[in-house]
């Protein structure tokens, strides 16, 4: 167990997220995205945010990715039906993304603060602690998010119905 674990996982995250956007087959994209989210789960565990690690595992890798895969297979999409942009537009997109990245990295370099992340409070991300915070200070947003989920569910059913 050393710091190199973080760099290994960070490399894997970047590698698999690049694979998500550069593979031709959309089904492979979803599978690579699942692996990317798994590396994020490991990042959360390393930060000792255990609640978020579990929620990320269940909600993202379980629910959202299954929804993506389900829609892809429902629409029967594969490599042959995959629309592709012209190479010029692709190059322009990559250059624009790189410009954004250079800007962000440059501004981080200009900040010039690089204190190490030290877990001052190791029990911070545990369910016990987060539950107390969530149901005391953030009770109203929590209840409102349930309204958001309900309206999203109604909206999704209404949109996907045959004759709207």
């Amino acid at each position: 167990m050393s710091q190199s674990l973080f760099y290994l996982i960070a490399f894997l995250s970047i590698f698999f997220s690049l694979m998500v956007i550069f593979t031709k087959n959309p089904v492979h994209s979803v599978l690579y995205l699942i692996i990317t989210f798994f590396t994020f789960t490991i990042h959360y565990i390393l930060l000792n945010a255990q609640f978020l690690a579990i929620v990320n595992f269940i909600v993202y890798m379980g629910a959202i990715m299954v929804l993506f895969l389900f829609v892809l297979m429902l629409l029967n999409l594969n490599k042959d039906t995959e629309p592709a942009k012209s190479n010029l537009l692709k190059m322009a997109g990559v250059v624009a993304g790189m410009c954004l990245l250079v800007t962000l990295v440059g501004s981080v370099k200009a900040l010039n603060v690089s204190n190490p992340v030290v877990l001052t409070n190791p029990g911070l991300g545990l369910v016990k602690n987060l539950g107390k915070v969530l149901f005391n200070e953030f009770l109203l947003p929590f209840e409102i998010s349930s309204l958001l989920l309900l309206s999203a569910m109604v909206g999704a059913v209404l949109l996907a119905k045959k004759e709207a």
Binding site: I21, L72, L77, P83, K85, V94, G97, V108
Partner: peptide, 18 residues
Amino acid sequence: AVIFAIGVMGVLIRRNAI
């Protein structure tokens, strides 16, 4: 920042809505 930029690039270079 790198992963965010990769996401932006993905929006720009792909045409598949999913």
